[in-house]
């Protein structure tokens, strides 16, 4: 049962380091099943997003992460699999549907934290979105896709940094969207991308020179 306490501790530490808190334009957010679709610049992103969610939504929200990265090493594996109940995706799988575990989780009724860029960026503009989010949206039309812009996380813990440095992060949640029934992958992805970028704040700055 120590996993629960560890998770609470991690979220608490994340709040103290970053003031992680959510800004929700449009508070219609009934507790349906959702896929949070966020920009990815830091290992902290998923933790920050969970920290910013209200408790009742956080309970069954699980991050989606790369298996090759997060399954390595004992403590890291424990943290991802037991503490955060991460859905691990095999990026180099020869499987026809590498998103299998994510489909499984959505079928169980869980909500997901999804980074459609597929990897961490440097905090500048969004990288091209991978089509995974499109397949999820098409297979589960009842699940809301909630675009999120996470601000400043790359300043707190950028790629390759070991220690987080305190900073002010904020999470901007957009209005939920879903697949309209006929869009192809390119059209849907560009719609998601535009919504995510519209949430970006004017004074959002990428990680400057060190």
């Amino acid at each position: 049962m120590i996993e629960k306490q560890l998770k609470a501790l991690a979220l608490w530490a994340a709040r103290w380091i970053t003031t992680a808190h959510g800004h929700q334009p449009g508070k219609e957010s009934a507790a349906g099943q959702r896929i949070y679709c966020a920009n990815h610049t830091s290992h902290l992103d998923a933790v920050l997003l969970m920290a910013a969610l209200p408790h009742r939504l956080r309970q069954n929200t699980r991050p989606v992460a790369a298996a090759d990265y997060w399954r390595a090493g004992g403590f890291r594996k424990y943290l991802t699999e037991r503490v955060f109940r991460t859905v691990l995706i095999d990026r180099d799988s020869s499987d026809l549907n590498p998103l299998g575990p994510a489909f499984q989780a959505l079928r169980q009724g869980d909500s997901l934290i999804f980074f459609p860029e597929g990897t961490r960026g440097c905090g500048g503009s969004l990288q091209p979105l991978k089509p995974g989010i499109y397949f999820l949206a098409r297979a589960f039309p009842q699940v809301q896709i909630v675009p999120v812009w996470i601000r400043n996380a790359s300043r707190v813990l950028p790629k390759r940094a070991v220690f987080p440095v305190p900073g002010t992060c904020a999470l901007h949640f957009g209005a939920p969207l879903s697949w309209d029934g006929q869009e192809d992958a390119a059209a849907f992805l560009s719609r998601v991308r535009i919504t995510m970028e519209s949430l970006r704040q004017p004074n959002d700055r990428p990680n400057g020179p060190r």
Binding site: T19, G167, N207, G208, P209
Partner: peptide, 20 residues
């Protein structure tokens, strides 16, 4: 809190972890 806010927009970039 104040230092964290000040450092978050510091034009000199990300400080080292010892700064705080």
């Amino acid at each position: 809190f104040a230092l964290r806010e000040f450092a978050a927009s510091d034009p000199a970039g990300r400080p080292g972890a010892w700064y705080f």
